[in-house]
Write a protein that binds this DNA or RNA. Structure first.
Lengths: 152, 152
DNA sequence: TATTGTTATACTCTATAACTATA
DNA sequence: TATAGTTATAGAGTATAACAATA
């Protein structure tokens, strides 16, 4: 019928959920939650992103993200600025405190990645990364196709 | 600092969250949610599992799962039975309606897996599955190690 | 008119703990 | 005492839609 032990969405969810909940428990020690860490990591990657870009990167809904950012602003981790080009858009920026906290957590994040990849060769780990990127691209193309159908 | 485009937990979350939310929208057409589908798929794999086993398989918290099962019982998709050996334990079973609904959704689930794996060779897809299983095993070993530390 | 982001609402999930029944 | 599961509660997240400001 459906062999769950070979069903990719199942395997993906199980692995992802376990690493996420383990890391969520860990970042609590730094006074933040996993969604906040995701925003910090996204801004560390590229500062000054717009809400819609951050939502895409962190896989957090725009309306949820807007309130996560509120919380982060109250914690003095980020600030909002009106974007130059489009006055509707807002860009989000790390504060000095936000950058410092991110730097403290990065080594912990690397630890968890190392635990997850224990026993993997470098080539295997790279192949896994590349396949997850391709898989994401496939799902984005599906989203785009469904949007066209919905618009009809 | 931290190269997000090569950071495994990020890639895993992004791919998993996108396929999950796409499939969640789809199963709504069948009057159920993604957590309910996960329980159906787990019971289709092996019927009569205990709550704790289902929680592990579906990555849903036990207390949340207990209420998901309540909902499924009200929808006549599953039933509860007292387990023979241990009278504390409860086993969950698909009803005929639950089995029928699962059978209807399985082809749709396969479709989504096929979309996610578009462009992958069979060997690549199998390698991805195997690596996700290993990754999950690594995280389970971490959980076990942390429990020992917590007990001390 | 369409888009960007914020806010409101109801619902769902999580985390924690209290509770019942059994071991 | 410990374990399996249920229920209660508060805090977050999701989904949807209404809204303000701007394009």
């Amino acid at each position: 019928m459906l062999d769950l032990s070979r069903y990719l969405p199942y395997l993906l969810n199980r692995a992802g959920a376990h690493i996420a909940s383990a890391f969520n428990r860990r970042v609590r020690e730094y006074g933040i939650t996993l969604p906040i860490w995701r925003v910090l990591a996204a801004l560390n990657h590229r500062d000054g992103q717009r809400i819609s870009q951050l939502a895409e990167m962190t896989a957090i809904e725009v309306s949820t993200l807007s309130r996560v950012i509120n919380l982060m602003v109250r914690k003095r981790l980020t600030g909002r600025r009106r974007s130059g080009g489009d006055a509707r858009a807002v860009t989000v920026h790390l504060t000095a405190a936000g950058r410092m906290l991110t730097r403290r957590i990065i080594p912990v994040a690397r630890e968890y990645e190392a635990v997850a990849l224990a026993g993997f060769s470098k080539a295997e780990a790279d192949m896994l990364r590349a396949m997850l990127v391709r898989l994401y691209g496939n799902m984005q193309r599906l989203d785009a196709a469904l949007e066209i159908v919905a618009a009809e």
